[in-house]
């Protein structure tokens, strides 16, 4: 059984705005899925449709075999949801809030307190457990919301921008916690974010969305393969063969044409011009060939580094294509 299955899912709001368009996607249990896109792309709407808060305009969706449009309460028993609009009570303490939401899932007070204590400790909120929520900072509220979504030990966790408003250390800790939940408890994670860098740290598969449409789905490798450029090498050298500034770098490899581009042209030292080049290559095998050609041409190399396209690069490549 799929953890999530969407089939040509669409959501058009009453005003006519299409928030989700013809989306088909499946998630396997235990997957950490990054649902990525800018603000207003349709991520939150998708989460709301998957949890029965909104009715789909067309198409179907199932969460662990349950239809959220028909039986939202059955989906809620399986899922933990953290979104910006799902807040908690300001006049209750962190602990009281968690115990209250625990009881909403039928968990007894003693067990709720035990679970809440453990989650507060893991999310570094143990000291603030007795403080009213009104005294919490944005980051603390964000972490308490994650704790709330985990109180009933859901099979699937929907997180909408869980690291926004968190300092880098807290964001890293939250990411580690999410990763552990998937690894140790086999929890499925549906992570919506526009912070592509944090997503790349933990997700096993990604779906890129823009204006309600799913642009692509796959692992990082699959996404890299899907865009035209696979890899880049950056070289800083004082003398560069003209060939690099024009077209083919390594004809003998018979790989696709690579383009050399002068990213920066800097003058350093006494009359020594160091060129800073970024070349698009198809594999690491081309790097020794490039280096050899520069050295044989009498050039001195100051820096060589290879990099693969990040999620951000892939995302921009895909949105430019559109």
């Amino acid at each position: 059984m799929h953890a999530v299955a969407m089939e040509q899912l669409s959501k058009i709001y009453a005003g006519g705005k299409t928030a989700v368009a013809d989306m088909s996607l499946t998630l396997e249990p235990g997957e950490v899925f990054g649902f990525l896109g800018p603000n207003g792309a349709g991520k939150t709407t998708t989460v709301k449709v998957l949890n029965g808060m909104l009715q789909p305009s067309a198409g179907d969706c199932l969460v662990f075999g349950e239809d959220p449009a028909r039986n939202p309460e059955k989906v809620h028993a399986l899922s933990g949801v953290m979104t910006e609009h799902a807040q908690m009570y300001n006049n209750l303490t962190g602990m009281q809030n968690l115990v209250f939401y625990g009881s909403m899932f039928g968990i007894g007070e003693t067990e709720s307190r035990k679970r809440a204590g453990e989650l507060l400790r893991q999310l570094e909120l143990a000291e603030a457990a007795g403080q009213k929520l009104s005294a919490y900072s944005t980051g603390m509220r964000q972490r308490l919301s994650i704790a709330r979504a985990l109180m009933h030990r859901p099979k699937i966790l929907f997180l909408d921008e869980p690291t926004s408003g968190l300092d880098p250390e807290s964001a890293h800790n939250v990411n580690q916690m999410i990763l552990n939940l998937a690894k140790e408890q086999g929890m499925t994670i549906f992570l919506c974010t526009h912070q592509l860098r944090y997503a790349q740290e933990i997700c096993s598969r990604y779906g890129l969305i823009d204006e309600g449409r799913l642009l692509t789905v796959g692992t990082l490798e699959e996404l890299r393969d899907g865009i035209s450029s696979g890899m880049r090498v950056r070289i800083q050298a004082d003398r560069v063969p003209d060939a690099f500034l024009k077209e083919n770098v390594c004809d003998e490899h018979e790989k696709k044409k690579t383009e050399a581009e002068i990213i920066n042209f800097a003058a350093e030292g006494k009359g020594t011009e160091i060129r800073d080049l970024t070349l698009e290559i198809t594999s690491e095998d081309e790097i020794p060939c490039i280096v050899r050609q520069i050295v044989e041409g009498g050039g001195k190399i100051y820096h060589v580094s290879a990099s693969r396209p990040s999620l951000e690069d892939i995302y921009f490549a895909l949105t430019v294509e559109r």
Binding site: E73, H76, S79, M88, N90, Y101, M104, F105
Partner: peptide, 14 residues
Amino acid sequence: EQSTLETLLYSPLT
């Protein structure tokens, strides 16, 4: 008003 209604609606209550 407090944005807590959505949280309540995510509970397994109908």
